[in-house]
Write a protein that binds this DNA or RNA. Structure first.
Length: 335
DNA sequence: TCTGGGGTCCTAGGACCC
DNA sequence: TCTGGGGTCCTAGGACCC
């Protein structure tokens, strides 16, 4: 018996949920994002595999997606529907009796002691399919990092194992941003240091990277390069540290009085949604055109809306506003 | 008419205190 | 004219992820 981490990831989850309730869409290029109008500001949340063949992908502006695939079916994001299906999936995973750590709507880690992790993984996938009609892929690793990356090799609807024994064979020559936790910015900075592969990152001097990235992040990056990381699956229910709302306007706002009204409106909404938790701080976010983001916050004293307005007062009303956000940080948040 | 909306975690700098 | 050292807390911003 060996301790394994499994990473279960639903295939094209959001698009798959939409197809489930609209069977006529099966096999068609489906794009879910924004309010479903590809002429508006917004990005793609998920594209079906058929839509991906046209070069449509997550994070892409909807208008770009429409350009690439004018005949795609565009649908609005329906968070309530995905939450409901997600809960079903997670319940199936928990029914295995093993610890489950939820990562988002469509993915979770499962910890398991077994001599045959592939068989266990296929069993989980079959249970999910039987209960929800959804396909998933399962990555197997000695820790969360390995399991998470393994899933990418298993898609779609497959199972893949990645361990320390196969780490360099699979990832050694790939760029550092193939690793979960390393994005474009860090990859570019690493490239500036002459580190362009996972193997080079693994061989880098932790002290040198500490000088470049900070005392925690530097050595941690080297460990990522070596495929090492946390192997403990934490089944503790998720408790949010903060909750917020933000809105991008279809047309930039120039009238600062209107900015104040929108912030007050967002503040009332957030206050309503967090009424069960003590709030320590209220943070306002302003994205000025074209895309400069600034945040200011205040400790909560008095009314929530007053706090939001006090935070807003720290901004300069000197340019058009593209986005406004209000976020509550909880007083009882761990960490 | 490029660039959403929901989050988490880490870093750096200044305030503040002894 | 010169003005330590350490620790903690608060704040804003950056990077990343789904």
């Amino acid at each position: 018996m060996t301790r394994w981490v499994l990473h279960v990831d639903l295939d094209q989850f959001i698009a798959a949920v939409e197809v489930l309730r609209r069977p006529e869409l099966r096999g068609k290029p489906v794009v879910v994002g924004g309010d479903g109008d590809p002429g508006k500001r917004g990005v793609v949340s998920t594209a079906s595999y058929e839509a991906r063949e046209f070069g449509v992908h997550s994070g892409q502006p909807l208008r770009t997606a429409r350009k690439r695939c004018p005949d795609c079916v565009f649908l609005p994001v329906d968070a309530a529907a995905y939450n409901a299906v997600s809960a079903e999936v997670m319940a199936v995973l928990r029914d295995s009796g093993e610890p489950v750590e939820v990562l988002g709507w469509d993915e979770a880690f499962v910890g398991v002691d077994t001599g045959d992790p592939e068989a266990f993984a296929r069993g989980l996938a079959a249970d999910v399919k039987a209960a929800t009609s959804l396909d998933c892929s399962v990555g197997i690793g000695e820790n969360k990092l390995q399991a998470k990356i393994a899933t990418g090799y298993g898609k779609p609807a497959g199972v893949f194992r990645l361990t320390s024994a196969t780490w360099y064979e699979l990832l050694g020559d790939r760029p550092p941003d193939a690793i979960w936790g390393i994005g474009a910015k860090t990859a570019a900075k690493l490239a500036g240091l002459g580190i362009t592969t996972v193997r080079q990152l693994a061989d880098a001097d932790p002290d040198r990277l500490a000088a470049e990235f900070g005392p925690m992040t530097g050595p941690w990056l080297v460990l990522l390069g070596r495929g090492r990381g946390d192997g403990e699956v934490d089944p503790t229910p998720y408790v949010a540290r903060s909750h917020g709302r933000e809105v991008t306007f279809q047309r930039n706002i120039r009238d600062w009085a209107r900015v104040g009204e929108e912030v007050a409106r967002l503040a009332r909404q957030v206050e309503d949604e967090v009424s069960e938790r003590p709030v320590a701080r209220v943070v306002v976010k302003v994205r000025y055109a074209p895309f400069l983001t600034v945040t200011h916050g205040v400790a909560l004293a008095g009314s929530f809306e007053e706090a939001a307005r006090a935070a807003l007062a720290q901004f300069t009303p000197d340019r058009p506003v593209r986005l406004l956000g209000v976020r509550a940080e909880f007083a009882d948040a761990a960490g």
